[in-house]
Every structure is written in C-alpha cells, then in structure tokens.
C-alpha cells in the first residue's frame, strides 16, 4: 500500500492498516518459523486430538448459542401465545355452551307451550311469552333504530406501544367510554325503546354497562368498537324523542366536542338477539290452584318465568359501581 512510502502520511491510521494488512495471528508465522528452523514441516497435522476436541467445542458453542440466543424472544412470546390460546379456548367453550343453552331453551319453550295448551291455559301461555319478551330471553324483531357510536378519528400522536400506561397522562378524549354508552342507552330507554342490544348483547334488566380499564363490558363481556346499538321501538317517535332527551343531547355534545362519531338510522326491521343465560332467580310456588284460565295476578306468577317482572317497570341500565 502507498502508506509505506516516505513520510507515512497515514501515521494515524496505523492501527487500521495493521489490522487490514495482517489480520492473521502472527503466532502462526512465528510457530512455523520455529518448526522449520528445527527441521520439521511448517504446518502441523490437521488430525491431532486437541484440534478435533476444539473443533467439537466450537461447533457446540455455535449450536448452543444459536438456541440460547433465540430463546429469549420465544420465552416471552410463548407465555403470551399460551394465554391467548387459553382465552380463545375458553371463549369458544363459552360460545358453545351458549348455543347449547339456546337450543335447550327453545326445547323448554316448546315443551312449555305444549304443556300449557294441553291444560288449555292459553292465558298463561300468552302471559309467559309477554314476560319473556320483556325479560329479554327471546330474540325480537321489529322496527327501530340502529345507532353506531365510534371513537373519534385517531389523533396525530398515538401512544407508543411500549409506553407505561401509568405514566401516560391525560385520558384519550376521543374514546367512547362506558359512561357514554350508559347515558346513550338510558336515553334510548327514555325515548320508548322496547328492546336494546349493543354489539349483539341484549340489554336485560340485569345487564350492566361497565368499564374495566380501557375496555367496555356489557354483561361482563368486552366490546370492540364500533359500538352498534340496536333499539326496537316506534320508528316514528323513537329517533325524534331520543334526539330531544338527555341521551340525544349528550351524544350531540360528544360529537361536537370530542369528534366522537355517532350515526343513527331508522330501519323497518331491527333484530335484537335474546339473552340466553338468564337463570331463574326467584320462584314462588303457586299457593292456590289456579282455576281461572285468565289468572294474571301477581301471586300466580308462573314458576317458569325468568327474572322478576319488574323488568318492565325499571327500565334503566345499571350504572357501574
């Protein structure tokens, strides 16, 4: 190289030139020289036991580190994958059980209807179906409104994914929270809705809209945005009254102040699914034998009706504790 010329302009680069020009361990050359001076060939045999042992050692080192250094990423993600798999399995199991309950309930209903008609108590049968409708155990279809509520369009600076949620200050103002849904749903009840579901979850008298951290739970099941609220009611008055009452004005202020999206549309046919997991909480035995087929008084509440009949009276959604 030209660095070897007189004056050595690259004196400051000696370290690098040394490394580039003579990367081989000088020990090899020295040892070869020693061996040659004592009359042996310059190179030793490649089959000495030490060499083989060291070669095996190096191979083991490479293999072991390949495994060990890949492990940390899999170790953390393995736990996460495991958890996700368990959650999904549990959720699938719950869904299967819900479907089973659904089919069993329809069986029970047909059997009930058959038994009641056999005893020619049509009054009880119609009373039962009316109460079921109000308790929310059966799916209902009818005219109503579909209200879609969604978070505001994302702002410019999203939170870094690894940021500690405790240090992130200021809640995201554009997010729909459980309280918003509570107020909107109560507004819909107020406007005369007869049955409401959010994202396919029927709001019965025992379903609460709650928040758990950032998630919104309806009846202890988490929702994902957008939040689609199906409400059945008089198509003429429901939308108008909702727009007038506190729920509607609350939604309006959310829209104008926080850019939360809320879109209401009237439909001639809205499907609100039933809540199949309502269980019998309170049953009173019929004290006296019902003689009149039109017995609809409170003491003669049929044992099979689910949930108290106050479902119709207190049409407000629970607030979170």
């Amino acid at each position: 190289m030209s660095a070897g010329q007189a004056g050595r302009p690259h004196d400051s680069m000696t370290l690098i030139t040394e490394m580039m020009e003579r990367p081989l361990d000088p020990g090899y050359a020295a040892a070869a020289e020693r061996r040659q001076s004592s009359g042996l060939p310059a190179a030793t045999s490649l089959h000495t036991p030490t060499l083989v042992i060291v070669a095996i050692l190096i191979g083991a080192l490479l293999g072991a580190s390949a495994l060990a250094l890949r492990a940390p990423t899999t170790a953390t993600s393995k736990i996460k994958r495991d958890m996700v798999a368990r959650i999904e399995a549990s959720r699938a199991h719950a869904d299967a059980q819900t479907r089973l309950i659904d089919t069993l309930r329809t069986e029970i209903n047909t059997a009930q209807a058959a038994a009641l008609t056999a005893q020619s108590r049509t009054g009880l049968a119609s009373e039962l179906s009316k109460l079921e409708l109000e308790a929310g155990t059966v799916p209902v279809t009818g005219p109503g409104v579909v209200l879609t509520v969604d978070d505001a369009p994302t702002q410019a600076a999203p939170v870094a994914p690894d940021a500690n949620p405790r240090t992130v200050t200021g809640p995201d103002q554009g997010k729909v929270i459980a309280k918003d849904l509570q107020i909107i749903v109560n507004g819909l009840w107020d406007a005369g809705a007869e049955a409401i579901s959010i994202n396919g979850h029927r709001l019965t008298s025992r379903a609460a809209i709650r928040s758990a951290g950032a998630a919104i739970l309806v009846d202890y099941r988490p929702l994902t945005r957008p939040y689609v609220i199906n409400a059945i009611g008089d198509p003429g008055s429901l939308g108008v009254e909702f727009a007038d009452n506190s729920g509607g004005s609350y939604l309006q202020s959310l829209k104008s102040n926080y850019q939360i999206r809320g879109d209401i549309q009237n439909l001639t046919s809205v499907v609100v699914p039933g809540e199949p997991t309502l269980s019998l909480q309170k049953a009173l035995p019929v004290v006296t034998a019902v003689t009149s087929p039109t017995a609809t008084g409170p003491p003669a509440t049929p044992g099979a009706t689910t949930s108290p009949s106050s479902a119709a009276a207190t049409r407000t959604t629970e607030t979170s504790p």
Binding site: D25, A32, A42, A43, T44
Partner: peptide, 22 residues
Amino acid sequence: VFGGLRAVLDGIFNDKVFVVSF
C-alpha cells in the same frame, strides 16, 4: 476458525497456536 483456515491454506497451520488463539 477463519484464522485457522487461512493458516491451513497458507501452509503454516499449527494446532497449538489455533487452540490458544481460540
């Protein structure tokens, strides 16, 4: 390993130097 390989090709390989250098 690469130093040893080069020494082999240069004809000056020495097992002791290789082991010690490793």
